[in-house]
């Protein structure tokens, strides 16, 4: 497609504005993280009066950042792994089988995306408590409780995306495997999953991020041993002052792995979305 001159102008200006919009807050985050506390408490300066690595040192002792980080990693990885695994089975069933209740299931799962978290927060807490009393398995305040909660948050999207992905994989491949005597699990494992790798990557990163950032449920369902970053980072501001510089340095450190992971895998998310939505 030939681009007229005006479009090149519009593009230049548009990209500049979008870049500014994106970069300025990021710049503020990075520079604030190397400012001394006195700078942060005073009128905003574009450049720190002194560049100091101190916030990066202090942030570990002001709050139990390392523990929170480990908790978040455990919870998010667990939620992502189970979410993907469970979604694979469900998506395979929906994509490859016609059975009674199929549409009901699809619609119900999708409609859970609409549920306001605030509606089922307290009942869910009660259910976890009841399960705990009945079986001795502690769900509220434990990693596993959070994993279960979060895996279902990403499940609808994961299933939906994998279904569209599987739909784009020719059934002939499955049939070839059947003729070779493979069962559904083997077919899923040997044929469908390898062909759907990008979709799986995309779903994994989505599920991970969903769990990584959740605040509302974490605020009630965590205790001292399972506090995640989303809750733990708030401790920088519940003390005698708000340690803005440490908030920013800690946020930066804990965001980098996620951002890098996301950027590395975003291409699969694009492919997944293409396979899904665009058809």
């Amino acid at each position: 497609m030939r681009e007229p001159r005006w479009f090149q102008w519009v593009r230049g200006v548009g990209l500049c504005l979008l870049t500014l919009f994106t970069v300025i807050p990021l710049y503020v985050m990075v520079t604030t993280s190397v400012k001394p506390l006195s700078d942060v408490q005073d009128t905003f300066q574009w450049w720190p009066s002194v560049l100091t690595p101190q916030p990066y040192v202090d942030m570990w002792s002001t709050v139990r950042l390392a523990d929170y980080f480990v908790n978040s990693v455990v919870v998010s990885l667990g939620a992502a792994a189970f979410s993907v695994l469970i979604a694979l089975f469900a998506a395979y069933a929906i994509s490859r089988y016609r059975f009674r209740g199929r549409d009901v299931f699809r619609f119900t799962v999708l409609s859970t995306q609409m549920f306001p978290g605030i509606l089922f927060l307290l009942p869910l807490y009660l259910i976890y408590a009841t399960v705990g009393q009945a079986t001795g398995i502690v769900l509220q305040g434990s990693h596993i409780g959070l994993i279960i909660t979060y895996l279902t948050f990403s499940l609808p999207f994961s299933i939906w995306m994998l279904v569209s992905y599987f739909d784009s994989i020719p059934v002939d491949l499955d049939e070839a495997a059947f003729i070779d005597g493979a069962g559904p699990v083997q077919t899923l494992w040997r044929v469908v999953i390898p062909a759907a790798k990008p979709g799986i990557a995309a779903v994994s990163i989505y599920a991970f991020m969903t769990a990584w950032g959740e605040t509302l449920f974490a605020s009630i369902m965590t205790d001292a041993d399972s506090t995640t970053l989303a809750i733990g980072l708030r401790e920088y501001s519940t003390q005698s002052t708000v340690y803005w510089n440490e908030v920013m340095s800690a946020s930066l450190v804990v965001s980098i792995p996620v951002v890098l992971g996301f950027l590395a895998l975003q291409r699969y998310l694009v492919q997944g979305l293409t396979a899904g939505a665009v058809k």
Binding site: G136, V138, S142, I144
Partner: peptide, 29 residues
Amino acid sequence: MRHRRLSGVIVLILVLMSSLLAGCAREQD
């Protein structure tokens, strides 16, 4: 055969999850 294997896998997942649960269960007071 095949279906038994499928059930096996599903059961395996559930067992895995519940063993995780058990592992995470707190010691009794």
